[in-house]
Amino acid sequence: MAEEVLPITRQVTTESRETGTSFVDIHLLDVEDCLIYDRHGVCIPFKSLYQERKSIIIFVRNFLCYSCKEYVEDLSKIPREALEDAEIRLVVIGQSAHCHIESFCSLTGYPYEIYVDPERCIYQKLGMKREETFTDSAPPSPHVKSGMFVGQMKSIWRAMTSPAFDFQGDLHQQGGAIIAGPGSQVHFSHFDMNRMDHMPINWLLQLAGVQQTLDFSDKPKIIHV
């Protein structure tokens, strides 16, 4: 019997996006049976997200993080038909209790699938960072519009005014993104170095096979007549 070859996934950081020379092994067999929870508290195995079709799976830091909020707000702008034409499933995973999902979706306008991994089982087994690393050469995220000070104040205010005063996840946990499926095939992986290190959404869409390029700029559009 031929030896099974595990897929090797390209890891793209802000320092290596131009060269694309850094790689990391992602073993989905290690996390396929980890349970994730929907907004009603119903659990499903992680593997059900990517067994039948290719999926873009985004792991966010926590639901009160201003940069995650603004990133997911831009995810919500992806046209449903663009995903359907490419047969792509889009999923966001947080690390809070499931009771916070509904308010986060209302806040961001996010209409697609969303789950939580409250024990951070998948985050930990995949090796996502639990501290932040900043570099002077890192380009600014195209999806985060708030400055750090103002953004943090917004996060604290949302925590203070929420029905249950908590930060909806480990404040030190970083997120990431993977493209996987069908089956256990992994096409791409990016683990965030810090709260600003989200993978640009258009890059993710193109790597997954979506043909449409979207404009996520908050600048006013100029219409030539």
Rank of each mutant, 00 (worst) to 15 (best):
I26F: 07
I26Q: 04
H27D: 09
H27F: 07
H27G: 00
L28F: 07
L28N: 07
L29I: 02
L29Y: 09
D30R: 13
V31K: 09
E32V: 08
C34D: 08
C34Y: 12
C34M: 10
Y37L: 12
Y37I: 02
Y37G: 01
Y37P: 00
D38Y: 12
H40F: 12
V42G: 01
V42I: 09
V42T: 04
I44N: 01
I44R: 10
P45N: 07
K47V: 05
K47I: 03
S48Y: 02
L49N: 02
Q51T: 15
E52F: 05
E52I: 01
R53E: 07
I56R: 12
I56A: 08
I57L: 07
I57E: 02
I57Y: 01
I58V: 14
V60Q: 14
V60G: 08
V60S: 12
V60W: 10
R61S: 11
R61E: 11
R61H: 09
N62Q: 12
N62K: 03
F63Y: 14
F63Q: 15
F63T: 10
C65P: 03
C65F: 08
Y66R: 03
C68I: 02
C68L: 02
C68N: 08
K69T: 10
K69D: 01
E70F: 00
Y71H: 13
Y71M: 05
E73R: 14
E73M: 15
D74L: 09
D74N: 14
L75Q: 00
K77D: 03
I78M: 10
I78G: 14
R80D: 01
R80G: 02
R80T: 02
R80K: 07
E84R: 11
E84I: 11
D85A: 09
D85Y: 04
D85G: 00
R89A: 03
V91M: 13
V91W: 09
V92C: 09
G94I: 02
G94Q: 00
Q95R: 05
Q95N: 07
S96Y: 06
S96F: 01
C99A: 11
E102Y: 12
F104L: 05
F104Q: 13
F104T: 09
C105Q: 15
L107E: 05
T108F: 10
G109A: 12
G109E: 12
Y110C: 11
Y110K: 14
Y110S: 05
P111R: 14
Y112C: 06
Y112M: 07
E113H: 07
E113V: 07
I114Q: 12
Y115Q: 02
